[in-house]
Amino acid sequence: MHVSSLSLRDFRNYAAADIEPGLGSVVLVGSNGQGKTNIVEAINFLATLGSHRTSIDSALIRQGSDAAIVRVNLAHDGRTILLEAQLNRNGANKAQVNHSAAKLRDFPRYISTVIFAPEDLMLIRGEPAGRRKFMDDLIIQRTPRLAGVVADYDRVLKQRNTLLKTARVKDIDAGNLSTLDIWDERLIALGTEITGERRRLLTDLAGPLAQAYEAIAGSDHAVSIELKTSIEAEHNPQAYAEAFKNLLETGRVQEIERGITLVGPHRDDVEFGLNTLPAKGYASHGETWSYALSLKLAAARLLRSESVLGDPILILDDVFAELDSARRQRLAEAVADFEQTFITAAVAEDVPAQLMKHVFHVKKGTIEFGTNNA
Rank of each mutant, 00 (worst) to 15 (best):
E84I: 10
R142V: 09
L248Y: 10
S55Y: 10
A210H: 12
K245E: 14
F369P: 14
A16E: 14
A300K: 03
T261P: 11
A92P: 03
E226C: 02
D317L: 05
R142G: 05
P208C: 00
M1C: 08
M122L: 15
D269N: 11
H285E: 15
I231M: 08
I115M: 14
V362I: 15
T344D: 10
R132G: 00
K363L: 09
P21N: 05
M356C: 11
L205F: 04
A174F: 10
R200T: 13
H266R: 11
R62L: 01
V362K: 01
A241I: 07
S219W: 09
A239G: 02
S31R: 15
A299D: 07
M122I: 03
G251K: 09
E127W: 09
A326D: 13
G207K: 13
A129Q: 11
Q340I: 04
L314P: 01
L164S: 08
N161A: 12
S5T: 08
D204M: 06
E226N: 10
A321G: 10
L87E: 06
N93A: 11
N73R: 11
D77G: 09
I216K: 01
E339C: 04
K364E: 15
N176M: 13
H52C: 00
N88V: 01
T80W: 02
A167L: 12
E255S: 12
S100R: 13
L187Y: 12
L49H: 05
R132T: 09
R252H: 12
A85G: 02
I231S: 06
A345E: 00
A174I: 12
P352V: 06
R258Y: 15
A239D: 14
R258V: 09
V253I: 15
E287W: 06
T54F: 00
A215F: 06
G78E: 02
F134M: 00
V149T: 14
A348P: 08
P144K: 04
S284W: 14
V149I: 11
S224K: 08
D268N: 09
R330L: 01
T48H: 03
V263E: 10
H99S: 07
R199V: 09
G148M: 00
A321N: 05
I56M: 08
F342N: 00
T192W: 06
F116Y: 13
G259N: 12
A345S: 13
I111D: 10
R89E: 02
A241T: 03
A222P: 02
A348E: 09
L303K: 02
S290W: 07
H221F: 08
F342W: 07
V72P: 01
A95I: 03
I115P: 00
V263K: 14
Q34S: 10
Y153I: 00
R327S: 09
K363D: 15
T80S: 14
H2N: 06
S65C: 08
R330A: 01
E257A: 15
L190W: 05
N161R: 11
L323N: 04
R109D: 04
F369W: 11
V3T: 09
D317K: 00
V150Y: 07
K363W: 06
V72L: 07
R142W: 06
A292N: 10
S25K: 07
A92M: 05
